[in-house]
Design a protein around this nucleic acid. Structure first.
Lengths: 324, 324
DNA sequence: CTGTTAGCGCCTTCAA
DNA sequence: TTGAAGGCGCTAACAG
């Protein structure tokens, strides 16, 4: 089913078929003949051929640390919608939280796509620099990297975490334990920084290494409790949910015995028991913003650095007055 | 960075470069020259050109109803691993639980890929038939469609649900409410059938329409409770988790006041409060099985229909003796 | 407005 | 074992 067969069936040249398919002006009578021939034969242009001659694949690559994290999923879905509207597909790669694989994955992806969106990349700046040199069509989501000139859309992770700490402070909490995320994640750094700043408001914080997943949250609780906190602040909702299950195993009531916060506001956060106090990162706007940036740079326009998106705090049932 | 530049740099013909890249026999001295030239220039073959000439893209398409469902994610990850090992990429499309979009999405995907894996497709059999005619390289996961000859790997949804019902019966439950999934899903049909069969063992079952997601589970509880069940049987873990949150809102204790089951054993099931009694669908084996089938048909071999995979029941804390 | 033609980068006969 | 040459399907000049 090639352009040749359609051309023959319609009695025109292949150039005319090509024009019809790409919506260029063709005498309507011919155009109709071509369209019906294409319809009959079920013709669809070969993307490889189109890609070869045009140098474009109408595809953007997306790298995420973990597809199973509903948060990344939300960003991805929003990005997908906008990309599809513009006739672009997305090729998604999951780095499995492996910061050492990210560069390799990204470079490989770059062979097949016209642009690359890195969501919460953990790779070192030097790696980002390598990518930036290999292609100008690279944008960042939730990673602010200075000096590389990469267009970026990100949420104000620092501000969100600070707000959460303020909320806890107002509830009378004085001693927190922070369940830290992966050290290589920008959001992790920002959130940690915010928690450190909270000390200025009289909060005493213990830092406990955890990680990005449910299991990590679950496993970090015991160490966190050795610091006798009245509230647990988790790197994200997944970690918080894992912590919640461990607290339950220990017969600790949330929030009566101990308060708990997450961040991201994934769907599960609203449905856990108790429901989770968290901050609602605007997944949709991140996804839309990412598409806006990548489509701009692919079009050769200069994408502006957008300001940080604000994450609204959502107070639910997992936080309460400090136990004494 | 074309094959031409490498050939010139190495002082050989492009045919030789091509042979080296594809591992054909070339005098080792030349091969070394080519490899180092390719290395220096950072040459990577253009996939569009390769695809055009070979007719293959080394890519398989995967259609899932909802990428945010951790269950599909698990299947996908396993499939990805095996595909990557064989040098294939996956192009994933999310049908957003829209059974009417699935055919269109699949046909479109088929343009770009060498094979198509449909995970839990909801589209009608006629649509599957259309796809089967357009390409022989289509396989099914968790959808048994008779008479189409499509290679299939699926979990024994019927048996798993029956086992769950037996578990509840042994706990003394007599009156269940089943929170149904999407009518178009094969697993939904199978599970419903199992629940109906459970009636033969003295279980009285009320069928309540729900859907596939957390929100659906949450919203279906009130109607389910009008039937005064002692146990809620959910279409899947997501629905069960949603139901759990609603039960909590109603101050009903699980399992003291009412028991609850899911299916799939997604990660959250272990970490909910209470942890969820469910059946562990072998995501990894489904994914690996799907790759086995699709790689076989792509190679022109005839893929055998594999027998149904068994899902092990996992009894946790959400089920207990029937309240009276 | 339409057809002819020259490649896009690569693989693969076919000769040497 | 190697090189020359044709062609995969399509788009984009360039003529007409």
């Amino acid at each position: 089913m090639t352009i040749r067969s359609v051309a023959d069936a319609a009695g025109v040249s292949i150039a005319t078929v090509s024009r019809v398919m790409s919506g260029q002006s063709v005498r309507s009578e011919l155009a109709d003949r071509v369209r019906s021939a294409a319809e009959d034969l079920g013709y669809q242009p070969n993307p490889s051929a189109q890609g070869l001659v045009s140098g474009l694949n109408r595809t953007v690559g997306v790298v995420v640390p973990d597809l199973a994290n509903p948060y990344f999923n939300g960003v991805l879905k929003a990005l997908n919608v906008d990309a599809a509207r513009a006739g672009f597909r997305t090729l998604v790669a999951d780095s499995d939280n492996d910061e050492n694989e990210e560069l390799e994955i990204s470079r490989n992806l770059l062979r097949y796509v016209d642009g690359l969106v890195l969501v919460s990349p953990r790779m070192p700046s030097e790696s980002l620099h390598v990518l930036a040199k290999e292609s100008t069509n690279v944008v960042l989501v939730n990673r602010v990297a200075v000096g590389l000139g990469l267009p970026t859309v990100a949420v104000d992770a620092f501000g969100a975490m600070l707000e959460l700490c303020g909320h806890l402070a107002r509830l009378g909490h004085k001693k927190l334990a922070y369940l830290e995320g992966p050290a290589a994640a920008w959001q992790s750094v920002e959130r940690r920084r915010a928690v450190e700043h909270a000390a200025a408001f009289g909060l005493d914080v213990a830092f406990v290494p955890a990680g990005p997943s449910i299991q990590h949250g679950h496993d970090a609780v015991d160490e966190a409790l050795t610091h006798k906190p009245t509230a647990l602040v988790a790197f994200n909702d997944l970690v918080a949910l894992g912590a919640l299950s461990r607290l339950r195993e220990l017969n600790l009531r949330v929030p009566e015995d101990i308060s708990l916060t997450g961040t991201d506001d994934i769907a599960f956060a609203r449905f856990s028991t108790p429901s989770l106090t968290t901050t609602a990162a605007p997944q949709r706007r991140l996804g839309e913003g990412a598409w806006g940036l990548i489509s701009a740079v692919m079009a050769g326009e200069s994408a502006e650095e957008s300001p940080l998106l604000k994450a609204e705090m959502v107070v639910r049932d997992s936080t309460g007055p400090a136990a004494r």
